[in-house]
């Protein structure tokens, strides 16, 4: 049962996170916290002419939240901001079990195991929610951290 949650890909991202650190040029900044478990994720993005060039993450938390952030950074590079919006929506509903996979989602598919562990869904969605809020905020000129309460 545990193996469904902690797939090898997840543990690999957790132990060797991709794109940890801070983007060389910060065009977007997202901050997500889950006060209940103390997870804290910081995302920075470099965007050039609407295309996401670089995504980095920093912070601490459980394996699921950290692996999910690491996967996010790999997933979004190269997308336009619009495509990123759509992707985030899709991934979030996938984690919640509202959607089925219709395309090859790469490592994201490994995270689908959280569906069977309702309390862990928040861990998986934290980075995605934070980035979504940051993208929305930047459209409206606000800046607030995403807090999962």
């Amino acid at each position: 049962m545990l193996d469904e949650l902690y797939k090898e890909i997840i543990l690999d991202h957790y132990k060797s996170p991709r794109n940890r650190g801070k983007a060389s040029k910060v065009d977007f900044h997202a901050h997500g916290v889950n006060p209940l478990c103390g997870d804290d994720i910081e995302l920075t993005l470099t965007v050039d002419r609407d295309i996401i060039e670089e995504v980095k993450f920093d912070g601490h938390g459980c394996s699921i939240s950290q692996a999910s952030a690491s996967i996010l950074t790999e997933t979004l590079v190269g997308l336009t901001l619009d495509q990123a919006h759509t992707k985030i929506e899709h991934v979030k509903s996938l984690f919640k079990g509202n959607d089925i996979v219709t395309e090859d989602l790469g490592d994201i598919e490994a995270l689908q195991g959280v569906r069977k562990f309702p309390v862990r869904i928040k861990c998986a969605t934290l980075a995605w929610n934070a980035l979504q809020l940051s993208l929305q905020n930047s459209a409206t000129g606000q800046s607030t951290a995403y807090s999962d309460e």
Binding site: M1, L2, L5, Y6, P35, L36, C37, G38, G61, C62, S63, I64, F117, R120, C123
Partner: peptide, 18 residues
């Protein structure tokens, strides 16, 4: 959280959080 999860799979109920 991960510790609590693994323990749960062994029937051991502990709490994780603040």
């Amino acid at each position: 959280h991960d510790l609590g999860q693994v323990l749960d799979s062994k029937g051991v109920a502990i709490r994780a959080g603040h």
